[in-house]
């Protein structure tokens, strides 16, 4: 999926003069001029009108709300300027949520995209039952996030979960309390994300791989390049745009992670006793809708946005280097 805007395309503005037929040539021309000039705006207007109401307004208004201090549940609000931001930047719980979010994101995304690449490479081979395998790896996508979280949370149960039972065979005798530590809760949540999205990303990569001309590989084979070598020097660079796209989507999804950790914490927003797996989205909801500090939640939302911009930027520059620069 190339992020190609066609920005270079010049506007060949002059419209072909319409062959006027019988009557009222000028009025017809007027309408056709109007059509050419105005209709494009008419066509894009639904998007921009809705965006103004449900996108731009909340965005701007969030800024205003973030400058207010709200009393607990129905208490009064007062203007406090940047106090929410300064307080937030010094709030260890907020930074804890940031670290958790970034940590879970890294733990989920890196193996996920790597596995997806391997999987796509395997699916790209000639094999029987191709559709079956493709549908098989996509299956997790059609479950719901909440369902995944419920099932995995039960599987990760401390005393009666399947995973601890299986670990017992590997010699892990004590029952791991998955929720109670950072490493274990992050792993559990990352596994939910990975289970759901790896197959999807593999299919996207597969699509990219199939646009690569086969001749390239044949030529490389004749030159004696191993298939691993071919993967690194042909496949990877050729699907770089696709990788950029998936990284982009995973970054936004990962930094706004919510449903999985919430269900993992039995519907609570605190992410464990010491906030081991509280993500920023949970933190925002906790501040806004559990402690009713709307201003503080709004300030956190703005910082989340900045984090996403940073994340997308960093990942973009990083992924651009994959397979050498072009």
């Amino acid at each position: 999926m190339s992020v190609n805007l066609h920005t270079e395309r010049a506007d060949p503005a002059p419209p072909p003069p319409g062959p006027g037929r019988h009557h009222s040539r000028s009025s017809r021309r007027f309408w056709s001029q109007m059509d050419l000039k105005a209709t494009p705006y008419f066509l894009i207007s639904p998007y921009f009108i809705l965006f103004a109401i449900f996108g731009l307004f909340p965005l701007v208004f969030t800024l205003w709300v973030s400058l207010q201090d709200y009393g607990l549940a129905g208490g009064d609000a007062s203007f406090t300027g940047l106090k929410n931001y300064t307080k937030l930047l010094a709030d260890a719980d907020f930074w804890n949520a940031v670290i958790n979010t970034v940590g879970i994101f890294a733990l989920a995304t890196v193996p996920q995209l790597f596995l997806a690449l391997m999987l796509a490479n395997a699916l790209n081979k000639r094999l029987r039952g191709r559709l079956f395998f493709r549908l098989g790896v996509l299956l997790p996508l059609v479950t719901s996030v909440v369902a995944v979280a419920i099932v995995f949370t039960q599987l990760y149960g401390r005393d009666f979960g399947l995973f601890n039972w299986l670990l017992g065979f590997l010699g892990v005798d004590h029952h791991i309390d998955w929720q109670s530590a950072k490493w274990s809760s992050w792993t559990a949540i990352a596994s939910m994300v990975d289970w759901r999205w790896t197959g999807y990303n593999a299919i996207i990569y597969l699509a990219g791989m199939q646009t690569i001309p086969r001749d390239l590989y044949e030529a490389a084979s004749i030159d004696g390049a191993s298939s691993r070598r071919q993967f690194w020097s042909i496949t990877l660079p050729m699907i770089r745009p696709t990788i950029i796209f998936t990284v982009f989507v995973s970054t936004i999804g990962g930094l706004t992670l919510f449903a999985e950790p919430v269900m993992f914490a039995s519907n609570r927003m605190d992410g464990g006793a010491t906030g081991q797996f509280q993500t920023i989205a949970m933190y925002i909801v906790e501040q806004g809708f559990r402690n009713f500090d709307y201003g503080y939640a709004a300030a956190a939302a703005w910082l989340l946005f900045i984090l996403i911009l940073l994340g997308v930027g960093i990942n973009y520059t990083f992924v651009r280097r994959i397979g050498g620069s072009k």
Binding site: D177, S180, A273, T274
Partner: peptide, 12 residues
């Protein structure tokens, strides 16, 4: 009470 639980479960 979350701190209590954290203490009991080993994270505090």
């Amino acid at each position: 009470e979350q701190v209590l639980n954290g203490m009991d479960q080993g994270s505090v």
